[in-house]
Nucleic acid binder design. Structure first.
Lengths: 231, 231
DNA sequence: CGTTATTTTGATATACTTCAATAGGGGTGG
DNA sequence: CCACCCCTATTGAAGTATATCAAAATAACG
């Protein structure tokens, strides 16, 4: 079911194709994908797709950050993952997307038509392997997140999250958190307040330092690792 | 802080191959797998593999039930999933298994060598698609579990779990739970006591009935659906 | 059948949430 | 450039769902 316009913080504008062209891919096998990709851009808080939309496309993040959300009937929200530069998302066995994807910042994506990917996979078996590898990786990440949500304390969750973001981000000592504290809470199964207090604790302990609201310096990575109960 | 797993029999015995032979597969594409599979059986609480073992094999459950567990340093345990008849597990991008797999009951599995599967995939592109579909399905299940662990109450967790097991189990009104209450707790991010109390609540409410410890009758499936906050 | 593991039930403790109020920050219009 | 406003974050006080601790009841098992 294609989603009708819904009230969103920003007037809801559907992504529109802007130009076609190659962009960097993570591996040789995936480079073939670029030939069938279309670059799109979205503004902050725009939806890329809604839960329940027909799953026609597969996406890769070029710049910016995306969140994947699901909602319960009474409004409780969960953010399954944050998608950063180089991450793929939207690949799905079912007819429809099982979650909503929204731009956290202004974002540039490459969009691949599902049928084109299917066709290409027939011609290039290596592509199938690459997608298999990506899915295995995502599944592993999901398993770690389940451990976090099921069995870790607030401090352990936040510490794990920061380390994970640091690993994904590139530089090791400084990392940027484009999302809000509420987003982080909804990803870690905590409230905004608890996230804020936990950042405060880590700051007081000298483990991290904040530079503005969205930049974190890892002052003591080992200590952070221990707090995360490294798993 | 969530409690460490309590006394659990630790699996000490390595699985051993017993006999060779084909077994039923879920789809035509996967039938090809059976030709390269080896049937193995394990006793209750035996480990199929340990976290960190070299990931040489891929498995399918023929009879019985398996749990996939990860442990934190202090003993807190999380069960990522229960694997039932027809479920595949152990497929993995990495060199090693990221979790331990243990037999909950006496269990019969088919074991596929990873390299054989790889080779077969080269010859039968459809196999790759089937594995892709299985992984997508697993990923979806993981996303739902993250929502459960991150945002649902104890009653919602247990209700969701029962419905999920009912769907997987076959018959709709009666379902069997071969695992212990502790296993269920470690899967749902709860303690044994909370699981037990929640079962009690559902029983008092007339939503379920217990027949022995491991058989559940769904007396009011709609009510259970509402309690699960159907998501 | 006795023995041990598992489950249930009860009483208490606590980590996190909820509710409430203040403070900061970034953009916009004057 | 500054002043205002709104949104986000922080901080505080009180409440609650679930964990923990403890013990009895039930089931499993040799």
């Amino acid at each position: 079911m294609p989603s009708p316009a819904r009230t969103q913080p920003h007037p809801l504008i559907r992504p529109s194709a802007r130009s076609t062209g190659p962009s960097g891919a993570r591996s040789a096998e995936l480079a073939a994908l670029d030939r069938i990709g279309v670059v799109i851009t979205l503004r902050r808080d725009e939806a890329i797709f809604f839960q329940g939309d027909t799953a026609e496309f597969y996406f890769k993040v070029v710049t910016g950050a995306v969140r994947s959300c699901t909602l319960l009937a009474d409004g409780r929200r969960h953010i399954g993952d944050f998608l950063l530069r180089g991450d793929f998302f939207g690949l799905n066995a079912g007819e429809t997307y099982p979650f909503t994807a929204e731009a956290i910042t202004e974002v540039t994506l490459v969009r691949y038509a599902r049928r084109s990917v299917d066709r290409l996979m027939g011609q290039q078996p290596q592509l199938g392997r690459s997608l298999l590898a990506i899915l295995c990786h995502d599944l592993l990440a999901a398993q770690q997140q389940m451990l976090l949500l099921g069995r870790k304390t607030a401090v352990e969750r936040v510490a794990s999250f920061l380390l994970q973001m640091a690993e994904r981000g590139g530089t090791q000592a400084r990392l940027s958190l484009p999302m809000t504290r509420t987003d982080i809470g909804d990803h870690l199964g905590l409230t905004t307040e608890t996230v804020s207090r936990t950042f405060g604790q880590l700051k007081s302990a000298g483990v991290i330092a904040l530079e503005g609201l969205h930049e974190v310096l890892l002052m003591d990575r080992d200590a952070l690792g221990e707090l995360a109960e490294a798993a």
